[in-house]
């Protein structure tokens, strides 16, 4: 399992490279969105290792909350109000 977790950490570093370098703001938003999906993967692997459903709860809430964050960032970039 340690191999899989290290590969996911490698993915996270690739995303962080895009967050730091990304020439425009939407590039950074995409990288953060992908980062959120990767965290769900981490939670899944942890729940396999520990056999506890605590980590799946975290993963579920993380998937939904990162989606809301992405939508908010997209609306902000588009220059619209949040109540549309």
């Amino acid at each position: 399992m340690i191999v899989f977790v290290s590969l996911l950490v490698f993915c996270v570093f690739l995303c962080l490279y895009r967050v730091g370098k990304g020439p425009t703001a939407p590039d950074r938003t995409v990288a953060i969105d992908i980062l959120g999906t990767l965290v769900v993967g981490f939670c899944a692997i942890y729940s396999i290792v520990t056999k506890k459903d605590l980590y799946m709860n975290i993963g579920l809430s993380w998937a939904l909350l990162s989606f809301i964050g992405t939508l908010a960032l997209a609306k902000y970039l588009e220059g619209r109000g949040f109540d549309e």
């Binding site: 425009t24 799946m56 992405t70």
Partner: peptide, 29 residues
């Protein structure tokens, strides 16, 4: 819970991508 999470990810990921693409195009990239 993992199955429900698959459903949520499959619904939300394309929607988020669509929102970012539209925002990027409208903000002039």
């Amino acid at each position: 819970k993992a199955l429900l999470c698959i459903w949520f990810v499959l619904i939300t990921a394309p929607t988020g991508a669509h929102a970012i693409a539209r925002a990027a195009h409208r903000s002039g990239i």
